[in-house]
Nucleic acid binder design. Structure first.
Length: 563
DNA sequence: ATTGCTACGTA
DNA sequence: CGTACGTAGCAATG
């Protein structure tokens, strides 16, 4: 991995200085100057770029629209190797040097630093302190551009050591690091490019839920009262109920004969017929969600003058390693999806993975019988046949096995599954057992998933309910986390393969991709999105006999797609 | 001002 | 509700 051409890019903390280290040559200067050199090195050598983190080093390049193909992101590598989300340079450095994480010195300004700090700092030209850690004040130290060369060398040292550690852990881990590193780069591009909206249509959809835009507190309050009135008119004598206060809502419902333990949606759903206020309340909640979270304030804050919705993206969360996004990019209500639309001259290529989690289970477990079922477009059909049951029962059983669900019909159906696919079910049970013991596990790609994280104060074995929760978490994490790795490998491959079409990935949603494509390139983009899945799945699964499928279509609006 | 809870949107 | 995430409002806590 790091045996080929390598270049290092680091950012200073003094203004906008950065540095590029390539073949022993150090170029440093303002980010814009260095960006030019970076582009030249990329064009000529296409190296693997090493940085402490993409957000830190690559952001100016992404903003300057310099495309970089391959990276080793030290922070992402650290998250994979050691689990969790925290991945500061000091922590990454400590981890590859075998130093305990709680021995990492506190930065200046911290109370602890004032106690033990300043006299432990090394001489001004030295990055590493007497105990082998990065100097505690390295952020301030990096304000001096003279230190950027050492900072780049340190990143390279960490990357090489991470590679060695990765290879010792799992044969797939180094490849996962490069894929996750590309995903981190993609996250910066997603932040830069945003999700194209049809602003007028989106405003119209918001208006349908929240009413027209209001000006000033008086009007806003009046609109709010008008929305509340649609519920309160069903409960004469209780018009003063605060609908935003669950306790008051519960009391109001009790007064009309709806006695519920909580006022949650799935509880109230059963009472729609009992009293008209229930239906009105649920409709109000749906509208209130749009009014408060996805209303005009949201539009004004996060949709740019170029009609693109922007938010921060993270390549992996702290649990199993899914991507996350802010500002509604990952939880936009379905009602607003018609507002997500290609801009003039473009279309959206929308692709989502079909039944990705059971297919991932087939790879992770190496269960040949279960893998055979993935040859079908609908894998639940052959599973049902083997179980001698309905498709619906087969589906519930498979999902229950992966999620640890016990309620409903799942329990009975699971028994047949254990007999039919002992290898796959054995893997899930082993994962659950590690979780119950509070032991970490690794995803297929090698990401360490800690399970002791729930209430560290209460160790495994002291609370059966907590142990069961850890077991469910672990059972799910090995699947969800591995699926996230396949997805990111796919997204990174799409990123690379549609670029020359003038297309770009504009949304990643766990098993779904939206690509913004110039109209004339639509058909070719579809081919490349599908081809990328085949290539990414083959690489990720090591050629396992497991089929992955995508439903790929060309649409103007996100809502046009099925489902 | 921060934290915990309830609630709900997405996968 | 099986898991994960982000966001908002309210109540209780400092």
């Amino acid at each position: 991995m790091l045996s080929g051409e390598v270049a290092v890019l680091v950012a200073g903390t003094g203004g906008v200085r950065s540095a590029l280290l390539h073949r022993g040559r150090l170029v440093q200067g303002h980010a814009a100057e260095v960006a030019e050199q970076v582009a030249a090195v990329e064009a000529e050598h296409r190296p693997r770029w090493v940085w402490w983190s993409a957000g830190d080093a690559a952001r100016p390049l992404v903003e300057a629209r310099v495309h970089l193909a391959r990276a080793w992101d030290v922070a992402e590598a650290h998250r994979l190797l050691h689990g969790g989300f925290e991945a500061s340079p000091a922590l990454c450095w400590a981890a590859v040097h075998g130093l305990a994480r709680d021995s990492v010195p506190a930065p200046p300004g911290d109370d602890l630093f004032d106690l033990v700090g300043a006299e432990d700092l090394p001489p001004d030209d030295v990055l590493v302190d007497a105990r082998g850690h990065l100097r505690a004040d390295h952020l301030r130290w990096l304000e001096d551009p003279a230190h950027l060369g050492a900072w780049a060398e340190a990143a390279l040292t960490v990357a090489h050591r991470q590679l060695a550690q990765a290879e010792a852990v799992s044969p797939r881990l180094a490849s996962t690091v490069t894929s996750e590193s590309a995903a981190a780069l993609l996250c910066l591009e997603l932040e830069r490019d945003g999700l194209p909206l049809d602003r007028a249509r989106t405003e119209q959809l918001v208006a349908e839920a929240a009413g027209p835009r209001t000006v000033g507190d008086v009007e806003t309050t009046a609109a709010r009262r008008a929305r509340d009135e649609t519920v309160l008119r069903h409960v004469p004598g209780r018009e003063s109920t605060d609908l935003r206060n669950p306790a008051q809502v519960k009391e109001m419902l009790a007064a009309v004969g709806v006695d519920v333990p909580t006022t949650r949606k799935w509880v109230l759903e059963a009472y729609r017929e009992v009293h008209p206020v229930v239906d009105a309340l649920l409709a109000w909640r749906r509208d209130e969600r749009i009014a408060t979270t996805y209303g005009y304030r949201w539009l004004d804050a996060h949709v740019g003058p170029d009609d693109r919705l922007r938010g921060r993206w993270t390549a992996c969360d702290g649990a199993a390693g899914r991507m996350t996004a802010e500002n509604g990019l990952h939880n936009l209500p379905a009602a607003l999806r018609p507002g997500v639309a290609a801009h003039p001259g473009h279309v959206l290529v929308r692709a989502d993975l079909g039944q990705v989690e059971p297919r991932v289970l087939a790879v992770v477990s190496g269960d040949t019988a279960f893998a055979a079922a993935t040859r079908a477009d609908d894998l639940y059909a052959p599973v049902a046949q083997r179980l001698g049951s309905d498709r619906a029962v087969a589906k519930i059983a498979v999902l229950a096995a992966m999620y640890g669900q016990r309620s409903g019909a799942a329990g009975e159906a699971l028994k047949g599954l254990e007999a039919a696919y002992p290898v796959a079910m054995g893997l899930l049970e082993r994962a659950a057992a590690s979780g119950r013991r509070g032991e970490p596990l690794r995803t297929y790609g090698g990401r360490l998933v800690p399970t002791g994280r729930f209430l560290a104060a209460r160790p495994p074995g002291t609370d059966p309910q907590l142990d069961a929760a850890r077991g469910r978490f672990a059972r799910n994490a090995v699947i969800q986390g591995s699926a996230a790795e396949l997805f990111k490998a796919w997204a990174a491959t799409v990123r690379a393969s549609v670029r020359e079409l003038g297309a770009s990935v504009v949304l990643c949603l766990h098993d779904e991709l939206l690509v913004h494509v110039p109209e004339e390139a639509a058909a070719e983009a579809v081919r490349r999105v599908d081809g990328s899945l085949e290539a990414a799945a083959r690489r990720w699964s090591g050629g396992a006999p497991v089929r992955f499928v995508a439903d790929t279509s060309v649409v103007r609006r996100w809502s046009e797609a099925k489902d």
